[in-house]
Design a protein around this nucleic acid. Sequence first.
RNA 1: UGGGAAGUCGUCCAAUGGCAGGACACACGGCUCUGGACCGUGGAAUCGGGGUUCGAGUCCCUGCUUCCCAGCCA
Length: 576
Amino acid sequence: MSGREGADPSGSGRPADFIRAAIAADRAAGRHDGRVATRFPPEPNGFLHIGHAKSIVLNFGVAEENGGSCHLRYDDTNPAKEEQQYVDAIAEDVRWLGYRSTGPARFASDHFDRLYEYAETLIRRGAAYVDDLSAEEIRATRGTLETPGQNSRYRDRPVEENLDLFRRMRAGEFPDGARVLRARMDMASPNLNLRDPTLYRIRRIRHHRTGDAWPIYPLYDFAHALSDSIEGITHSLCTLEFENHRPLYDWCVAASGADFVPRQIEFARLNLGFTVLSKRRLKQLVDEGRVSGWDDPRMPTIAGMRRRGIPPAAIRAFCRRVGVAKRDSVVDVALFEHAIRDELNRTSRRLMGVLDPVKLVVENYPPEAEEMFAAANNPEDASAGVRHVPFSRELFIDRADFMESPPRRFFRMAPGREVRLRAAWLVTCTGFDRGPDGEIVEVRCRLDPDSRGGSAPDGRRVRGTLHWVSARHAVEVEVRLYDRLFLAAEPGRGGDFRDDLNPDSLRTVRARIEPLVGELAPGGRIQLERVGYFVADPVEHRQEAPVLNRTVTLRDAWARLLKRRKRHRSRIPGKR
RNA sequence: UGGGAAGUCGUCCAAUGGCAGGACACACGGCUCUGGACCGUGGAAUCGGGGUUCGAGUCCCUGCUUCCCAGCCA
């Protein structure tokens, strides 16, 4: 992976984005002796998705480019929601994406002792107080966007009393919710985050790492800022919604007397067209059974994308391409699909397979005969070598590759037409049969004996090249054809996002694929020529019972032409 | 209607007072034993109104639009 690309994609010598520019400026000013340290701070309460990938690529990328460090740090300050299972899944996802924490993964809970000390310092300095108000009372006295809040009647407790109460909170003397530690800031601040925010609350819940050691837990603003400080994080990169929290972030560090001062910089989170990325909605899809799980190949989760066959390098490339800025935006899925195809085109080996088989009989080929044809494993990469594909009299081709009366610009098989069978022969269509229901059941052709290997002896031009499989050699394979999960560019724009679900986001077919498909290992990625990119399902694929997931289709000029014609026709006035 | 932030091709990102550029998408053409890939060409934008300046996407004023904030979530 080349971090350089992220640093300077234009080759202009200028930093690629405003964050890298800010970091470069900090280094130039000699701050932190030029050291750069970042962190990726997920909460272990769900699965990582493509939006997190943007943050991962940014944080680890910036660190790498500057010879710095990047900690994977779990923000585990809310034991009610967090679980070890998510810690493990996140670790796996980060590793799969190609990144390693500098040193061991950290946890906010690693810092609970020091965080507690900082809290006492705050109290001793008169910057925090224990409040006996209930959650409802605190809400009621917070004021509104336009009106100031009121000071709590406990706001001016003496330091000694605060200290005593806080220690007793820590000792477990009070029930959940009885008291909180609040920052003594400004109940009239126009920034609601600064109206004496809560720093610690009582929760007698077992924590997945610290067990029952703590009856109190710090809240995000306090824990995050000081964890950054403790770990020596120079640049704390987060999303836009924390912009309003920055004064609090800075306050926590300054008021606690922490000696290391990190800098928070906010950037716009990633939004992707035809996709939802909120934890709540993703969870809803899983809980309501609209997908098979967090790793359903239609999910934008790292686990889902892995199962979909999307290579980590494609995700990294995509994240670098979308850039980093402060503007709210929705990235076109086409850009993501481009990154996927770009990577897969260069790296995946080719196989032939037929999704919707129609029998093709080569009339002048002996019934018992068979032969092997050499075909390139990857035309983009000569070093990938060749494979051998069996040919015989009875083949399968795709139904879409034959038409009885073809329209203009249809270059495939039709009565009297000559086409090439990829890597094998030139054949001319001699006829076809229909079944009782009118469906084409068999197509017949004759091959040109001088065209062995697929080239015309006289150099005549043959426009169409078809993929095929030998009927008696082909392996029958379950193929899951995945399509985008939503029909709307911004699901839920005009109501319930579930109404925008694509009813055809998964179609399963029995395909016929050349024998080599049997050698695929789970997770193996291939291109089915002229069809698309596929992965042997990492979970369910067995060599004796192959299961392929479609990662993405190939770009298809013919399909686009058809679509355009249809659109055009429907626009002819008076036709309705 | 308080505070914070953001408005540049269809989309995403650049342009740090000096020719508005790149990528994706789209269109057209070339090439091709994948209608893929690749190559070429083209259309396509500075939110509106004022101002400063030789010169404004960039600076100033003003208006508009969008996003974020009233968790003891992160």
